[in-house]
Simulated scan of single mutants.
Amino acid sequence: MNVKHKVVSIDDNKLNLMLIESMLVNMDVEIVSFISPTKAYEYCLENDTDLILVDYMMPDLDGISFIKKIRTTDKEVPIIMITAIDDDDSIKTKALEAGATEFLNKPLKLYEFQVRVKNILALRRHQVLLKDRAAHLQNEVEKATNQIVDREIETLSILGKASEYKDTETGAHINRVALYAKIIGSELIDDEDMINTLYRSAPLHDIGKIGIPDNILLKPAALTSEEFDVIKTHTCIGYRMLSDAKSKYLQAGAIIANSHHEKWDGSGYPNSLKGDKIPLFGRIVAVCDVFDALISVRPYKKAWSLKDASEYITSQSGTMFDPNIVKIFENKLDEINNIYLKNQDE
């Protein structure tokens, strides 16, 4: 289907408009003529246009002023300025500086006029095609990028579940910790991408348990001090597994794995970090992980009540946990409890 180019013609003289219309009649264009440049401007704001023909000398808005006005909203549409003043180079210069594409003198010569219009419309057609092609390519890039992100998220999910098969922790626990972390993180972080990174990376907090021997990791009784020292190495193992990755999610996961057992007072492990020297993601996940572990059944313990677990978190403010994060935890406790109730272990 052949789509006609739309041409807008502006001149305060109706005879000149009729002349231009007659010169374009055989060029397969749709022409819309205006005596008023103000009405023409309003039309151009609301309609796609392929070419504007504008006279220079007009009473309420001269051609150069019209071009300047159009260029504030449309930087691309071709504009031909037409004037009867053929010996004033300053007008031509001002018109071109204002954004005119071409400049023609009256009286218009039929052949020259038609060739100029034909060439400009051809360029316009290619311009639109290139723009459409660029938009299509951008769309394809976005689709490909989304597919890569989806695969990366799928990989994160698989990695997060990997420790589940080595440990007594369940997939529901891993999912809940991530959801708790997102709620708390949203109160501390303005950047949506950073919040999403926290949410996607939190499930990797115990990935290092893959490297802990089963006889220690799955022991249904109290651990000896030597066995607990082995358990503590899961933080460093997790960090080594993830830290060299290029993925922002895996890099964040490495930081969380290495810091979620640090304590606010510096008595944690593996590096005895204190206060805000502990990475923010690690401080957030520490609260979430301990709370969910307390309210979950384990072979070596019964589940705590939500009330007892939340009171324990509060009691450890400033000792085990960042006081600011504990305060947010308390304020968001209803939401956190709802997450627990909606995401039970199978």
Rank of each mutant, 00 (worst) to 15 (best):
Q138H: 07
I153S: 11
T197W: 00
S247H: 02
V149T: 15
K307L: 00
F281Y: 14
I52M: 03
E346K: 11
A245G: 04
F329P: 13
L137E: 11
E164P: 01
V7Y: 11
I82E: 04
K327W: 02
M81R: 02
L156V: 15
K92D: 01
N16D: 10
E112Y: 09
I85L: 06
N258P: 01
I120D: 01
T224C: 04
G238L: 06
T319H: 05
L96Q: 04
A122V: 15
L250E: 01
V287D: 03
D28Q: 13
C236Y: 03
E187Q: 13
R71L: 01
D28G: 09
L19S: 12
L156W: 03
I313Q: 02
L159R: 06
A135N: 13
M58C: 00
K219A: 10
K277L: 14
V77T: 15
M58K: 00
V290D: 13
D334G: 04
L242I: 06
D150G: 09
D48G: 13
R200I: 03
V297T: 15
D62G: 04
K94F: 03
N215A: 02
K4D: 08
Y249S: 09
H126D: 12
V287S: 06
N343L: 05
A84V: 04
Y180R: 08
G318I: 00
H136Y: 15
P37M: 04
D89I: 15
S310F: 01
E140A: 14
